[in-house]
């Protein structure tokens, strides 16, 4: 008797729980954002592959990392964002190139907005965790602030030690705020209840070197503090993203 009672109780418990899950699933889905790093149209290969930039300098890329923050999807009548939205993407680490946004209300979205870099709150509120933890090596100690994006490599035109170039772009205080907003038309991204939709993005390192300012690596090869040069490069890379496909 007691045994069957337990069974019934367990059954009721499972039933109520599954209803709760189903209710959640009823109106929200997951969006997976996959960021593919490229140089022009080729998948980016660090350290060993030679590329040519807009100025005509050949170069190797050793490190390519950047923050994406404040991700928002919007469309006619629908909008979705996440709390504490800070993601560090590292071309050298595949696991960082996928972002899951859960509990996105079902609907059709056509716009994707985010920031390259991090907002002034994150830059001023002390020791942060997760992708913002200073152990990630994207932080300036002596002049507080995040390195919003980093591109490092080598080019024979650089008259520096090991022909290295180093672009550490950051700064949150005006007039040298290097954060850049990105607005992308996604086409129609349909989010269905309990299902996963995928947005494939391309982040093109070649954009760092051109439009509006063509970078001559023999002249500009080291930027590692907030200022005019950081602003120039941020203006260059602010259009490095594009949507390649949806799934």
């Amino acid at each position: 008797m007691q045994h069957s009672m337990k069974k019934i109780l367990t059954f009721i418990l499972l039933l109520t729980q599954s209803t709760v899950f189903a209710q959640n699933g009823n109106n929200t889905g997951t969006v997976k954002i996959v960021v593919q790093t490229v140089f022009d149209n080729e998948p980016l290969k660090l350290e060993t592959k030679k590329y040519v930039n807009a100025h005509g300098d050949s170069l190797y890329i050793d490190e390519f990392r950047f923050y994406i923050s404040g991700i928002k999807f919007s469309g006619s009548g629908a909008a979705a964002s996440e709390k504490e939205s800070y993601h560090l993407i590292d071309a050298g680490e595949a696991s960082t190139q996928t972002i899951y946004m859960k509990n996105i209300p079902a609907g059709n979205y056509t716009q994707l907005n985010f920031m390259i870099g991090v907002d002034s709150t994150a830059n001023t509120n002390g020791a942060n965790g997760g992708d913002l933890d200073p152990v990630k090596g994207m932080y300036w100690a002596w002049n507080t602030g995040y390195i919003m994006a980093k591109l490092q490599g080598r080019s024979s035109v650089c008259k520096t030690l090991h022909h290295a170039f180093e672009f550490h772009i950051g700064g949150y205080l005006p007039p040298f705020n290097a954060a850049r907003n990105v607005n992308l038309e996604t086409g129609v991204l349909t989010v269905e209840a309990g299902k996963e939709s995928v947005v494939y993005l391309k982040a093109d390192a070649a954009e760092w070197f051109k439009d509006p300012e063509t970078i001559d690596l023999s002249k500009m090869n080291e930027v590692n503090m907030p200022g005019k040069d950081a602003m120039k490069i941020a203006d260059n890379y602010k259009d490095m993203f594009s949507v390649t496909r949806l799934e």
């Binding site: 001023t124 932080y139 100690a141 002596w142 507080t144």
Partner: peptide, 12 residues
């Protein structure tokens, strides 16, 4: 005055 928050001062 390069550091804006006590928590991140020890990094220096």
């Amino acid at each position: 005055g390069g550091v804006n928050n006590l928590e991140v001062q020890p990094l220096n």
